[in-house]
Design a protein around this nucleic acid. Structure first.
Length: 283
DNA sequence: CGACTTTGACCTGCGC
DNA sequence: GCGCAGGTCAAAGTCG
């Protein structure tokens, strides 16, 4: 039931998206982190929030970002890259102490005390940021998450929540915060790559088979059900060779009718989250 | 009883 | 060096 849902259409580039698919297929991808750096927006007020529907397109095409509908974002904040690679040499507040140093299952405090980071460059995982118009903070994406922290964000009345994938050896993390300028917008930032498939047992309404067997439909089902309206995302492709396992295209059988003739772009984590049929970039 | 959330404390990086 | 802010830990509490 979506009756009580705020289902405004978000106009991007003078285009109105009524669904996740529309938005994704519009090739409107943004480098969240880069934008943060470029525009020096603090994390609580992500650049997206500064964007009015009428000027989003301008920012998408911001030259620094090297974005175009035909060029999937390659620059990333992923671990193999120099943290300063992107724009400017100083990490934004959101960037700086990005903590991959805390491995799941490890005694992170020990790690910290063992001088990790001394001379050792911190690694950062690829990140994907979503903006979702939703009443729900924690959006169901098919994976199981455990909340491990919550922090008040400076200058924002809304706290930021930290989640970690509950699957063993999977150190994917996600941050969820609400835009303080538009509280109806939830900013979800995924970090890392799942090294496993979508759990077969889900507590949410999303059945795994939706994601696995009917990719796309699962998300399309789950999003509206959760009163979400997908606004934007920024896939940070880890890098094309770093996918430890086969891409979904391969590992799950080429069941998608959408990708037969399309080059498959490895969007890293995003591909884990969003069916690849969404991720084909149009030419 | 296991899984998950809450929350205060702690650690780290950065700017001044 | 100090203070601030972000990120994480882990014990305690909650829930199914």
């Amino acid at each position: 039931m979506d009756d009580h849902v705020d289902h405004k259409n978000i106009s991007l580039e003078e285009k109105s998206f009524t669904s996740l698919t529309d938005c994704l297929q519009s090739s409107l991808v943004m480098d969240y982190n880069s934008l943060e750096k470029v525009f020096k927006f603090p994390p609580y007020s992500s650049p997206f929030q500064q964007i009015s529907p009428s000027n989003i397109g301008q920012i998408v095409n911001y030259p620094y970002l090297n974005l175009s509908p035909n060029s999937p974002i390659v620059s990333s904040s992923s671990n193999e890259a120099d943290p300063k690679e992107n724009l400017g040499d100083k990490s934004g507040p959101m960037e700086d102490s990005e903590g991959d140093q805390y491995g799941v299952g490890e005694s992170s405090k020990q790690l910290k005390k063992q001088g990790k980071g001394k001379g050792e460059k911190k690694e950062r995982e690829a990140r994907v940021a979503f903006m979702t118009k939703s009443e729900i903070d924690h959006l169901e994406d098919g994976y199981r998450w455990r909340k491990y922290g919550q922090k008040a964000v400076k200058n924002s009345p809304y706290p930021r929540s930290y989640y970690r994938c509950t699957t063993q050896k999977c150190n994917v993390k996600k941050r969820v915060e609400r835009s303080f300028q538009d509280p109806s917008i939830v900013i979800t930032t995924y970090e890392g790559k799942h090294n496993h498939l979508v759990p077969s047992t889900l507590r949410g309404p999303v059945a795994a088979e939706h994601l696995l067997g009917h990719r796309g439909s699962g998300l399309l089902h789950s999003f509206p059900r959760q009163h979400q309206e997908f606004l934007m995302m920024n896939p940070h492709p880890v890098n094309n060779q770093s996918v430890g396992s086969l891409s979904y295209q391969q590992s799950r059988g080429n069941s998608s009718n959408y990708s037969n003739s399309e080059p498959v772009v490895d969007y890293g984590l995003l591909q884990d989250i969003v069916p690849s049929m969404f991720l084909k970039h149009e030419s």
